[in-house]
Design a protein around this nucleic acid. Structure first.
Length: 483
RNA sequence: GCUCCCUUCGUCUAGCGGUCAGGACACCGCCCUCUCAAGGCGGGAACACGAGUUCGAUUCUCGUAGGGAGCGCCA
Protein backbone atom coordinates (compact mmCIF):
# COMPACT_ATOMS: atom_id res chain seq x y z
CA UNK A 1 0.00 0.00 0.00
CA UNK A 2 1.63 3.22 -1.09
CA UNK A 3 2.16 5.82 1.62
CA UNK A 4 0.52 9.20 1.33
CA UNK A 5 3.69 10.86 0.22
CA UNK A 6 3.97 8.67 -2.80
CA UNK A 7 1.03 10.45 -4.37
CA UNK A 8 3.24 13.41 -5.11
CA UNK A 9 5.22 11.28 -7.46
CA UNK A 10 2.28 10.83 -9.78
CA UNK A 11 0.58 14.17 -9.52
CA UNK A 12 1.65 16.60 -12.13
CA UNK A 13 2.75 13.97 -14.59
CA UNK A 14 1.18 13.35 -17.95
CA UNK A 15 0.04 9.92 -16.96
CA UNK A 16 -3.36 10.04 -15.51
CA UNK A 17 -4.58 7.67 -12.91
CA UNK A 18 -8.35 7.34 -12.78
CA UNK A 19 -10.60 5.11 -10.81
CA UNK A 20 -14.13 3.83 -11.02
CA UNK A 21 -15.43 3.38 -7.50
CA UNK A 22 -18.87 1.82 -7.34
CA UNK A 23 -20.52 0.65 -4.16
CA UNK A 24 -21.75 -2.91 -4.47
CA UNK A 25 -25.37 -2.41 -3.56
CA UNK A 26 -26.86 -3.53 -6.85
CA UNK A 27 -26.01 -4.28 -10.44
CA UNK A 28 -23.87 -2.07 -12.64
CA UNK A 29 -26.36 0.34 -14.17
CA UNK A 30 -25.87 2.35 -17.34
CA UNK A 31 -25.00 5.54 -15.48
CA UNK A 32 -22.23 3.79 -13.62
CA UNK A 33 -21.12 2.09 -16.81
CA UNK A 34 -20.77 5.42 -18.54
CA UNK A 35 -18.78 6.85 -15.66
CA UNK A 36 -16.56 3.78 -15.81
CA UNK A 37 -16.16 4.24 -19.56
CA UNK A 38 -15.16 7.87 -19.14
CA UNK A 39 -12.61 6.94 -16.49
CA UNK A 40 -11.29 4.19 -18.69
CA UNK A 41 -11.00 6.38 -21.78
CA UNK A 42 -9.33 9.20 -19.90
CA UNK A 43 -6.73 6.87 -18.45
CA UNK A 44 -6.09 5.07 -21.73
CA UNK A 45 -5.82 8.34 -23.63
CA UNK A 46 -2.93 9.42 -21.47
CA UNK A 47 -1.29 6.03 -21.35
CA UNK A 48 -2.18 6.05 -17.68
CA UNK A 49 -3.75 3.68 -15.23
CA UNK A 50 -7.37 2.75 -14.67
CA UNK A 51 -8.27 1.46 -11.22
CA UNK A 52 -11.36 -0.40 -10.08
CA UNK A 53 -12.19 0.15 -6.44
CA UNK A 54 -15.11 -1.41 -4.66
CA UNK A 55 -16.54 0.92 -2.03
CA UNK A 56 -17.97 -1.63 0.31
CA UNK A 57 -17.63 0.09 3.66
CA UNK A 58 -21.35 -0.14 4.21
CA UNK A 59 -21.50 -3.69 5.47
CA UNK A 60 -25.29 -3.55 5.70
CA UNK A 61 -25.94 -2.89 2.06
CA UNK A 62 -22.96 -4.37 0.25
CA UNK A 63 -23.34 -7.87 -1.10
CA UNK A 64 -20.99 -10.31 -2.82
CA UNK A 65 -23.60 -10.76 -5.55
CA UNK A 66 -23.41 -7.07 -6.33
CA UNK A 67 -19.64 -7.19 -6.45
CA UNK A 68 -19.89 -10.03 -8.93
CA UNK A 69 -22.49 -8.17 -10.96
CA UNK A 70 -20.18 -5.20 -11.26
CA UNK A 71 -17.22 -7.35 -12.20
CA UNK A 72 -19.32 -9.18 -14.80
CA UNK A 73 -20.58 -5.95 -16.25
CA UNK A 74 -17.09 -4.52 -16.56
CA UNK A 75 -15.88 -7.66 -18.23
CA UNK A 76 -18.71 -7.85 -20.71
CA UNK A 77 -18.17 -4.22 -21.67
CA UNK A 78 -14.47 -4.88 -22.03
CA UNK A 79 -13.47 -2.16 -19.60
CA UNK A 80 -10.32 -3.76 -18.31
CA UNK A 81 -8.61 -2.20 -15.35
CA UNK A 82 -4.93 -2.10 -14.50
CA UNK A 83 -5.26 -2.12 -10.75
CA UNK A 84 -7.89 -3.70 -8.57
CA UNK A 85 -10.45 -4.60 -7.77
CA UNK A 86 -9.42 -3.00 -4.52
CA UNK A 87 -11.84 -3.50 -1.67
CA UNK A 88 -12.18 -0.81 0.94
CA UNK A 89 -13.06 -3.40 3.54
CA UNK A 90 -9.50 -4.68 3.17
CA UNK A 91 -8.11 -1.30 4.06
CA UNK A 92 -9.64 -0.66 7.44
CA UNK A 93 -6.26 -0.68 9.15
CA UNK A 94 -5.12 2.06 6.89
CA UNK A 95 -8.19 4.20 7.58
CA UNK A 96 -7.76 3.68 11.30
CA UNK A 97 -4.19 4.82 11.00
CA UNK A 98 -5.15 8.05 9.26
CA UNK A 99 -7.96 8.70 11.71
CA UNK A 100 -5.51 8.29 14.59
CA UNK A 101 -3.19 10.70 12.87
CA UNK A 102 -5.90 13.33 12.39
CA UNK A 103 -6.94 12.92 16.01
CA UNK A 104 -3.38 13.39 17.19
CA UNK A 105 -2.96 16.48 15.06
CA UNK A 106 -6.20 17.92 16.37
CA UNK A 107 -7.75 17.83 12.92
CA UNK A 108 -10.46 15.54 14.12
CA UNK A 109 -12.17 15.02 17.44
CA UNK A 110 -14.38 12.65 19.37
CA UNK A 111 -18.05 13.49 19.51
CA UNK A 112 -20.34 12.07 22.15
CA UNK A 113 -23.53 13.65 20.93
CA UNK A 114 -26.43 11.25 20.78
CA UNK A 115 -28.30 10.66 17.58
CA UNK A 116 -31.32 12.05 19.36
CA UNK A 117 -29.59 15.33 20.01
CA UNK A 118 -28.45 15.60 16.42
CA UNK A 119 -31.93 14.78 15.22
CA UNK A 120 -33.52 17.42 17.43
CA UNK A 121 -30.94 19.94 16.30
CA UNK A 122 -31.69 19.24 12.69
CA UNK A 123 -35.40 19.70 13.15
CA UNK A 124 -34.90 22.93 14.97
CA UNK A 125 -32.62 24.29 12.26
CA UNK A 126 -34.95 23.27 9.47
CA UNK A 127 -37.80 24.96 11.23
CA UNK A 128 -35.75 28.11 11.51
CA UNK A 129 -35.12 28.01 7.77
CA UNK A 130 -31.51 27.08 8.22
CA UNK A 131 -29.45 24.44 6.55
CA UNK A 132 -29.24 21.56 9.01
CA UNK A 133 -25.75 20.86 10.19
CA UNK A 134 -23.78 19.82 13.22
CA UNK A 135 -23.31 22.67 15.65
CA UNK A 136 -19.84 21.75 16.85
CA UNK A 137 -20.99 20.85 20.33
CA UNK A 138 -18.02 18.58 20.99
CA UNK A 139 -15.60 20.44 18.78
CA UNK A 140 -13.74 22.17 21.56
CA UNK A 141 -13.31 19.27 23.87
CA UNK A 142 -16.15 17.22 25.20
CA UNK A 143 -16.43 15.22 28.35
CA UNK A 144 -16.62 11.54 27.58
CA UNK A 145 -20.06 10.23 28.33
CA UNK A 146 -20.12 7.01 30.27
CA UNK A 147 -21.17 4.09 28.19
CA UNK A 148 -21.12 6.05 24.96
CA UNK A 149 -18.64 5.16 22.30
CA UNK A 150 -17.90 8.37 20.41
CA UNK A 151 -17.85 8.97 16.71
CA UNK A 152 -14.93 10.84 15.19
CA UNK A 153 -15.69 14.09 13.46
CA UNK A 154 -13.50 15.96 11.06
CA UNK A 155 -12.71 19.48 12.19
CA UNK A 156 -13.79 21.41 9.13
CA UNK A 157 -12.34 24.91 8.81
CA UNK A 158 -14.75 27.64 9.82
CA UNK A 159 -13.08 30.39 7.92
CA UNK A 160 -12.68 30.80 4.22
CA UNK A 161 -14.06 28.55 1.59
CA UNK A 162 -13.32 26.06 -1.11
CA UNK A 163 -12.90 26.82 -4.77
CA UNK A 164 -12.14 24.22 -7.37
CA UNK A 165 -12.19 24.06 -11.12
CA UNK A 166 -14.28 21.13 -12.10
CA UNK A 167 -13.17 19.66 -15.41
CA UNK A 168 -16.72 19.59 -16.68
CA UNK A 169 -18.54 22.17 -14.57
CA UNK A 170 -15.98 24.89 -14.45
CA UNK A 171 -15.32 26.85 -11.28
CA UNK A 172 -17.34 25.90 -8.24
CA UNK A 173 -17.01 27.71 -4.95
CA UNK A 174 -18.57 27.33 -1.57
CA UNK A 175 -18.04 28.93 1.79
CA UNK A 176 -16.85 26.84 4.70
CA UNK A 177 -19.70 28.23 6.72
CA UNK A 178 -21.96 26.01 4.63
CA UNK A 179 -20.08 22.94 5.73
CA UNK A 180 -20.09 21.20 9.07
CA UNK A 181 -17.95 18.72 10.93
CA UNK A 182 -18.74 15.46 9.25
CA UNK A 183 -18.44 12.08 10.92
CA UNK A 184 -15.46 10.20 9.58
CA UNK A 185 -15.63 7.20 11.89
CA UNK A 186 -18.58 5.48 13.50
CA UNK A 187 -18.61 4.37 17.13
CA UNK A 188 -17.26 0.98 16.10
CA UNK A 189 -14.40 2.70 14.35
CA UNK A 190 -15.54 1.96 10.84
CA UNK A 191 -14.80 4.85 8.49
CA UNK A 192 -17.36 6.67 6.38
CA UNK A 193 -17.48 7.48 2.73
CA UNK A 194 -16.26 11.05 2.47
CA UNK A 195 -13.22 10.06 4.41
CA UNK A 196 -12.35 6.77 2.74
CA UNK A 197 -12.59 8.19 -0.77
CA UNK A 198 -10.03 10.80 0.07
CA UNK A 199 -7.64 8.41 1.76
CA UNK A 200 -7.94 5.99 -1.12
CA UNK A 201 -7.62 8.54 -3.85
CA UNK A 202 -4.56 9.92 -2.16
CA UNK A 203 -3.00 6.51 -1.51
CA UNK A 204 -3.77 5.34 -5.01
CA UNK A 205 -2.43 8.57 -6.44
CA UNK A 206 -5.57 9.21 -8.43
CA UNK A 207 -5.07 12.25 -10.59
CA UNK A 208 -8.57 12.74 -11.98
CA UNK A 209 -11.58 11.96 -9.89
CA UNK A 210 -14.37 11.30 -12.37
CA UNK A 211 -17.76 10.55 -10.83
CA UNK A 212 -21.45 11.36 -10.95
CA UNK A 213 -22.57 14.90 -10.28
CA UNK A 214 -24.43 13.82 -7.18
CA UNK A 215 -20.99 14.10 -5.58
CA UNK A 216 -20.50 17.78 -6.34
CA UNK A 217 -21.71 18.78 -2.93
CA UNK A 218 -19.34 16.35 -1.25
CA UNK A 219 -16.32 17.66 -3.04
CA UNK A 220 -15.66 20.75 -0.91
CA UNK A 221 -15.76 18.61 2.24
CA UNK A 222 -13.35 16.19 0.68
CA UNK A 223 -11.06 18.97 -0.41
CA UNK A 224 -10.82 20.09 3.18
CA UNK A 225 -9.78 16.60 4.12
CA UNK A 226 -7.14 16.58 1.39
CA UNK A 227 -5.81 19.77 2.88
CA UNK A 228 -5.80 18.35 6.39
CA UNK A 229 -3.78 15.43 5.08
CA UNK A 230 -1.41 17.75 3.33
CA UNK A 231 -2.14 15.99 0.07
CA UNK A 232 -2.19 17.51 -3.36
CA UNK A 233 -5.57 17.83 -4.98
CA UNK A 234 -6.55 15.76 -7.98
CA UNK A 235 -8.66 17.19 -10.76
CA UNK A 236 -12.37 16.67 -10.27
CA UNK A 237 -14.81 15.96 -13.05
CA UNK A 238 -18.48 15.58 -12.26
CA UNK A 239 -20.47 14.04 -15.03
CA UNK A 240 -24.21 14.49 -15.27
CA UNK A 241 -26.55 11.66 -14.64
CA UNK A 242 -28.53 9.66 -17.14
CA UNK A 243 -32.30 9.91 -17.22
CA UNK A 244 -34.83 7.35 -18.40
CA UNK A 245 -36.57 7.49 -21.79
CA UNK A 246 -39.25 9.65 -20.20
CA UNK A 247 -36.82 12.19 -18.82
CA UNK A 248 -37.42 11.03 -15.27
CA UNK A 249 -34.69 9.69 -13.11
CA UNK A 250 -33.53 6.25 -14.15
CA UNK A 251 -35.15 3.52 -12.17
CA UNK A 252 -36.13 -0.10 -12.41
CA UNK A 253 -39.39 0.70 -14.12
CA UNK A 254 -37.42 1.78 -17.16
CA UNK A 255 -36.67 -1.83 -17.85
CA UNK A 256 -33.11 -2.55 -18.75
CA UNK A 257 -31.09 -0.37 -16.45
CA UNK A 258 -28.57 -3.01 -15.43
CA UNK A 259 -25.81 -3.40 -17.95
CA UNK A 260 -26.16 -7.17 -18.07
CA UNK A 261 -29.83 -6.78 -18.88
CA UNK A 262 -28.72 -5.19 -22.14
CA UNK A 263 -26.78 -8.30 -22.88
CA UNK A 264 -29.85 -10.40 -22.18
CA UNK A 265 -31.83 -8.18 -24.50
CA UNK A 266 -29.44 -8.73 -27.38
CA UNK A 267 -27.17 -5.72 -27.51
CA UNK A 268 -23.52 -5.85 -28.47
CA UNK A 269 -21.13 -4.32 -25.94
CA UNK A 270 -19.67 -2.16 -28.71
CA UNK A 271 -23.09 -0.70 -29.38
CA UNK A 272 -23.78 0.08 -25.76
CA UNK A 273 -20.35 1.62 -25.29
CA UNK A 274 -20.78 3.73 -28.40
CA UNK A 275 -24.20 4.79 -27.26
CA UNK A 276 -22.99 5.71 -23.80
CA UNK A 277 -20.00 7.69 -24.96
CA UNK A 278 -22.28 9.89 -27.03
CA UNK A 279 -24.44 10.64 -24.03
CA UNK A 280 -22.97 13.91 -22.86
CA UNK A 281 -20.03 13.84 -25.19
CA UNK A 282 -19.54 14.36 -28.89
CA UNK A 283 -16.95 14.94 -31.53
CA UNK A 284 -18.48 17.13 -34.21
CA UNK A 285 -21.10 15.22 -36.15
CA UNK A 286 -19.55 11.80 -35.65
CA UNK A 287 -21.91 9.17 -34.32
CA UNK A 288 -19.96 5.95 -34.66
CA UNK A 289 -16.78 5.43 -32.70
CA UNK A 290 -14.56 2.42 -32.39
CA UNK A 291 -12.96 1.97 -28.99
CA UNK A 292 -9.70 3.16 -30.49
CA UNK A 293 -11.35 6.33 -31.76
CA UNK A 294 -12.96 6.94 -28.41
CA UNK A 295 -9.60 6.68 -26.71
CA UNK A 296 -7.98 8.99 -29.23
CA UNK A 297 -10.71 11.60 -29.26
CA UNK A 298 -12.25 11.58 -25.81
CA UNK A 299 -11.46 14.32 -23.36
CA UNK A 300 -13.35 14.63 -20.12
CA UNK A 301 -13.27 18.38 -20.50
CA UNK A 302 -15.56 18.12 -23.51
CA UNK A 303 -18.32 16.43 -21.56
CA UNK A 304 -21.63 18.29 -21.27
CA UNK A 305 -23.10 19.55 -18.06
CA UNK A 306 -26.67 18.61 -18.76
CA UNK A 307 -28.28 15.35 -17.73
CA UNK A 308 -29.32 13.32 -20.75
CA UNK A 309 -32.17 10.94 -21.39
CA UNK A 310 -31.48 7.39 -22.40
CA UNK A 311 -33.01 6.71 -25.79
CA UNK A 312 -33.37 3.02 -26.54
CA UNK A 313 -34.32 3.65 -30.17
CA UNK A 314 -30.98 5.19 -30.88
CA UNK A 315 -29.26 2.33 -29.10
CA UNK A 316 -31.22 0.00 -31.38
CA UNK A 317 -29.94 1.82 -34.41
CA UNK A 318 -26.35 1.58 -33.23
CA UNK A 319 -26.78 -2.05 -32.34
CA UNK A 320 -28.01 -2.84 -35.82
CA UNK A 321 -25.22 -0.76 -37.25
CA UNK A 322 -22.67 -2.90 -35.46
CA UNK A 323 -24.41 -6.14 -36.37
CA UNK A 324 -24.18 -5.05 -40.00
CA UNK A 325 -20.68 -3.68 -39.95
CA UNK A 326 -18.64 -5.67 -37.50
CA UNK A 327 -16.93 -8.75 -38.99
CA UNK A 328 -19.57 -11.48 -39.26
CA UNK A 329 -17.34 -13.79 -37.30
CA UNK A 330 -17.32 -11.43 -34.35
CA UNK A 331 -21.07 -10.98 -34.36
CA UNK A 332 -21.50 -14.71 -34.78
CA UNK A 333 -19.44 -15.32 -31.66
CA UNK A 334 -21.82 -13.18 -29.67
CA UNK A 335 -24.81 -14.75 -31.37
CA UNK A 336 -23.85 -18.24 -30.30
CA UNK A 337 -24.41 -17.21 -26.69
CA UNK A 338 -28.04 -16.42 -27.52
CA UNK A 339 -28.45 -19.62 -29.49
CA UNK A 340 -27.33 -21.59 -26.52
CA UNK A 341 -29.68 -19.73 -24.23
CA UNK A 342 -32.53 -20.33 -26.63
CA UNK A 343 -31.69 -24.00 -26.86
CA UNK A 344 -30.91 -23.89 -30.57
CA UNK A 345 -28.13 -26.13 -31.88
CA UNK A 346 -26.19 -24.11 -34.44
CA UNK A 347 -24.84 -27.31 -36.01
CA UNK A 348 -28.33 -28.18 -37.26
CA UNK A 349 -28.34 -25.42 -39.83
CA UNK A 350 -26.29 -22.81 -41.68
CA UNK A 351 -23.09 -21.44 -40.24
CA UNK A 352 -23.65 -18.46 -37.98
CA UNK A 353 -21.27 -16.42 -40.09
CA UNK A 354 -23.52 -16.97 -43.10
CA UNK A 355 -26.61 -16.19 -41.10
CA UNK A 356 -25.46 -12.91 -39.57
CA UNK A 357 -25.08 -10.80 -42.73
CA UNK A 358 -28.48 -11.91 -43.96
CA UNK A 359 -30.37 -11.27 -40.73
CA UNK A 360 -28.55 -8.15 -39.60
CA UNK A 361 -30.56 -6.01 -42.01
CA UNK A 362 -33.84 -7.01 -40.50
CA UNK A 363 -33.45 -7.09 -36.74
CA UNK A 364 -32.34 -4.68 -34.05
CA UNK A 365 -30.96 -7.15 -31.55
CA UNK A 366 -29.21 -10.48 -31.38
CA UNK A 367 -32.13 -11.81 -29.48
CA UNK A 368 -34.49 -11.00 -32.33
CA UNK A 369 -31.98 -12.52 -34.71
CA UNK A 370 -32.04 -15.68 -32.67
CA UNK A 371 -35.81 -15.85 -32.58
CA UNK A 372 -36.15 -15.24 -36.29
CA UNK A 373 -33.50 -17.75 -37.22
CA UNK A 374 -34.81 -20.74 -35.31
CA UNK A 375 -36.61 -21.91 -38.43
CA UNK A 376 -33.30 -22.62 -40.16
CA UNK A 377 -32.18 -24.97 -37.42
CA UNK A 378 -35.26 -26.79 -36.28
CA UNK A 379 -38.21 -28.59 -37.81
CA UNK A 380 -41.04 -26.42 -38.94
CA UNK A 381 -43.94 -26.77 -36.57
CA UNK A 382 -46.94 -25.41 -38.39
CA UNK A 383 -47.85 -22.72 -40.86
CA UNK A 384 -48.88 -19.37 -39.55
CA UNK A 385 -52.64 -19.40 -40.05
CA UNK A 386 -52.88 -16.00 -41.68
CA UNK A 387 -49.91 -16.55 -43.96
CA UNK A 388 -51.11 -19.98 -45.01
CA UNK A 389 -54.61 -18.73 -45.69
CA UNK A 390 -53.31 -16.00 -47.90
CA UNK A 391 -50.49 -17.70 -49.77
CA UNK A 392 -50.97 -21.45 -49.65
CA UNK A 393 -54.07 -21.44 -51.76
CA UNK A 394 -54.91 -23.75 -54.67
CA UNK A 395 -53.44 -21.27 -57.14
CA UNK A 396 -50.09 -21.77 -55.42
CA UNK A 397 -49.96 -25.43 -56.30
CA UNK A 398 -48.48 -25.08 -59.73
CA UNK A 399 -45.86 -22.48 -58.78
CA UNK A 400 -44.77 -24.61 -55.85
CA UNK A 401 -44.66 -27.75 -57.93
CA UNK A 402 -42.64 -26.13 -60.71
CA UNK A 403 -40.18 -24.31 -58.50
CA UNK A 404 -39.87 -27.41 -56.36
CA UNK A 405 -38.84 -29.57 -59.27
CA UNK A 406 -36.49 -26.95 -60.70
CA UNK A 407 -34.84 -26.62 -57.31
CA UNK A 408 -34.56 -30.37 -57.01
CA UNK A 409 -32.57 -30.37 -60.25
CA UNK A 410 -30.24 -27.67 -59.04
CA UNK A 411 -26.68 -28.70 -58.30
CA UNK A 412 -25.21 -25.58 -56.73
CA UNK A 413 -27.24 -24.54 -53.73
CA UNK A 414 -26.06 -20.95 -53.49
CA UNK A 415 -27.88 -17.61 -53.41
CA UNK A 416 -27.02 -16.73 -57.01
CA UNK A 417 -28.21 -19.93 -58.62
CA UNK A 418 -31.19 -20.09 -56.30
CA UNK A 419 -32.23 -16.60 -57.27
CA UNK A 420 -31.83 -17.50 -60.92
CA UNK A 421 -33.85 -20.66 -60.53
CA UNK A 422 -36.77 -18.94 -58.85
CA UNK A 423 -36.69 -16.15 -61.39
CA UNK A 424 -36.71 -18.58 -64.32
CA UNK A 425 -39.56 -20.50 -62.75
CA UNK A 426 -41.57 -17.30 -62.56
CA UNK A 427 -40.80 -16.58 -66.20
CA UNK A 428 -41.75 -20.07 -67.23
CA UNK A 429 -45.08 -19.70 -65.43
CA UNK A 430 -45.47 -16.19 -66.70
CA UNK A 431 -46.18 -14.81 -63.25
CA UNK A 432 -44.54 -12.11 -61.14
CA UNK A 433 -42.00 -12.99 -58.49
CA UNK A 434 -44.54 -12.33 -55.78
CA UNK A 435 -46.79 -15.10 -56.98
CA UNK A 436 -44.07 -17.61 -56.51
CA UNK A 437 -41.90 -16.19 -53.77
CA UNK A 438 -44.63 -15.71 -51.23
CA UNK A 439 -46.02 -19.25 -51.31
CA UNK A 440 -42.48 -20.49 -51.30
CA UNK A 441 -41.66 -18.30 -48.31
CA UNK A 442 -44.57 -19.64 -46.33
CA UNK A 443 -43.64 -23.16 -47.34
CA UNK A 444 -40.08 -22.67 -46.12
CA UNK A 445 -40.59 -20.65 -42.99
CA UNK A 446 -44.24 -21.00 -42.12
CA UNK A 447 -44.60 -17.23 -42.20
CA UNK A 448 -44.93 -14.45 -44.74
CA UNK A 449 -41.84 -12.72 -43.43
CA UNK A 450 -38.27 -13.82 -44.04
CA UNK A 451 -35.10 -12.75 -45.83
CA UNK A 452 -35.16 -12.53 -49.62
CA UNK A 453 -36.29 -15.80 -51.10
CA UNK A 454 -32.89 -16.82 -52.44
CA UNK A 455 -31.25 -16.27 -49.06
CA UNK A 456 -34.09 -18.03 -47.34
CA UNK A 457 -33.65 -21.08 -49.55
CA UNK A 458 -29.93 -20.95 -49.08
CA UNK A 459 -30.10 -20.75 -45.31
CA UNK A 460 -32.79 -23.39 -45.08
CA UNK A 461 -30.60 -25.77 -47.04
CA UNK A 462 -31.36 -28.12 -49.87
CA UNK A 463 -32.91 -31.12 -48.15
CA UNK A 464 -34.87 -29.12 -45.68
CA UNK A 465 -36.17 -26.82 -48.41
CA UNK A 466 -37.31 -29.58 -50.70
CA UNK A 467 -39.01 -31.39 -47.87
CA UNK A 468 -40.82 -28.26 -46.80
CA UNK A 469 -42.00 -27.56 -50.32
CA UNK A 470 -43.40 -31.08 -50.55
CA UNK A 471 -45.16 -30.60 -47.28
CA UNK A 472 -46.64 -27.30 -48.41
CA UNK A 473 -47.85 -28.91 -51.61
CA UNK A 474 -49.61 -31.57 -49.61
CA UNK A 475 -51.19 -28.87 -47.53
CA UNK A 476 -52.39 -27.00 -50.61
CA UNK A 477 -53.83 -30.11 -52.20
CA UNK A 478 -55.55 -31.17 -49.03
CA UNK A 479 -57.06 -27.76 -48.81
CA UNK A 480 -58.17 -27.86 -52.44
CA UNK A 481 -59.72 -31.26 -51.89
CA UNK A 482 -61.61 -29.99 -48.88
CA UNK A 483 -63.33 -27.28 -50.81
C1' G B 1 -36.04 25.88 3.91
C1' C B 2 -30.68 26.49 2.79
C1' U B 3 -26.38 25.50 -0.57
C1' C B 4 -24.59 23.85 -5.21
C1' C B 5 -25.67 22.62 -10.26
C1' C B 6 -28.44 22.48 -15.04
C1' U B 7 -31.62 24.73 -19.53
C1' U B 8 -30.48 24.43 -28.48
C1' C B 9 -35.58 20.21 -32.65
C1' G B 10 -39.66 14.71 -29.21
C1' U B 11 -34.44 12.48 -27.91
C1' C B 12 -28.75 12.67 -28.29
C1' U B 13 -26.02 16.77 -29.81
C1' A B 14 -22.87 20.79 -33.13
C1' G B 15 -22.24 25.83 -32.10
C1' C B 16 -17.44 28.69 -28.68
C1' G B 17 -20.57 37.48 -31.03
C1' G B 18 -22.33 38.01 -37.35
C1' U B 19 -24.61 30.56 -39.49
C1' C B 20 -30.60 30.01 -44.18
C1' A B 21 -28.91 27.50 -36.15
C1' G B 22 -25.66 21.85 -38.68
C1' G B 23 -25.78 16.34 -37.83
C1' A B 24 -27.88 11.73 -35.73
C1' C B 25 -32.12 8.74 -33.74
C1' A B 26 -37.32 8.81 -34.12
C1' C B 27 -41.42 10.54 -37.27
C1' C B 28 -43.76 11.68 -42.31
C1' G B 29 -43.49 11.31 -47.81
C1' C B 30 -41.35 9.33 -52.30
C1' C B 31 -38.08 5.71 -54.77
C1' C B 32 -36.37 0.61 -54.80
C1' U B 33 -38.90 -4.20 -54.03
C1' C B 34 -40.60 -11.49 -53.74
C1' U B 35 -42.48 -10.36 -47.73
C1' C B 36 -40.16 -7.79 -43.67
C1' A B 37 -36.29 -4.98 -43.49
C1' A B 38 -32.05 -2.47 -45.17
C1' G B 39 -30.76 1.41 -48.57
C1' G B 40 -31.42 6.17 -51.47
C1' C B 41 -33.82 10.95 -51.82
C1' G B 42 -36.84 14.67 -49.59
C1' G B 43 -39.79 16.98 -45.42
C1' G B 44 -41.60 18.92 -40.73
C1' A B 45 -39.20 19.96 -36.02
C1' A B 46 -35.20 23.77 -31.29
C1' C B 47 -31.97 28.44 -29.05
C1' A B 48 -37.22 28.48 -21.62
C1' C B 49 -38.34 33.85 -20.42
C1' G B 50 -36.82 38.97 -19.19
C1' A B 51 -33.27 42.62 -18.73
C1' G B 52 -28.51 44.30 -19.73
C1' U B 53 -23.19 44.45 -22.46
C1' U B 54 -22.44 45.21 -27.73
C1' C B 55 -23.02 47.99 -34.15
C1' G B 56 -24.77 42.90 -33.49
C1' A B 57 -26.56 37.95 -29.18
C1' U B 58 -28.06 30.89 -29.29
C1' U B 59 -23.12 32.45 -27.81
C1' C B 60 -21.02 37.17 -22.48
C1' U B 61 -23.44 39.18 -17.51
C1' C B 62 -27.53 39.45 -14.13
C1' G B 63 -32.35 38.14 -12.88
C1' U B 64 -37.09 35.01 -13.46
C1' A B 65 -39.27 30.42 -14.34
C1' G B 66 -38.62 25.29 -14.61
C1' G B 67 -35.61 20.99 -13.40
C1' G B 68 -31.80 18.20 -10.65
C1' A B 69 -28.54 17.15 -6.55
C1' G B 70 -26.87 17.66 -1.59
C1' C B 71 -27.91 19.04 3.48
C1' G B 72 -26.64 10.88 7.08
C1' C B 73 -22.98 7.35 12.21
C1' C B 74 -25.35 5.75 2.74
C1' A B 75 -22.08 5.70 -0.96
Amino acid sequence: MPPLAEAAFYLGTEFMRTRFAPSPTGYLHVGGARTALFCYLQARASGGVFILRIEDTDLQRSTPESVQAILDGMEWLGLDYDEGPIYQTHRFDRYAEVIRQLLEEGKAYHCYCSKERIEALREEQMKAGLKPRYDGHCRDGAEPVAGVKPVVRFRNPREGGVVFDDLVRGRISISNTELDDLVIARPDGSPTYNFTVVVDDVDMAVTQVIRGDDHINNTPRQINIYRALGAELPDFAHVPMILGDDGARLSKRHGAVGVMQYREDGYLPQALLNYLVRLGWSHGDQEVFSLKEMIDLFDIRDVNRKASAFNTEKLDWLNQHYMKNLPAKEVADHLSWYFEKAGIDPRQGPGLEDLVPVQADRVKTLREMTDQSRVFYEDLQEFDAGAAKKHLRPVAEEPLRVVGSRLAELDDWNPESLNETVRLAAEELEVGMGKIAQPLRVALTGTAISPSIDKTLWLTGRERSLARIRRALEYVMARAAAT
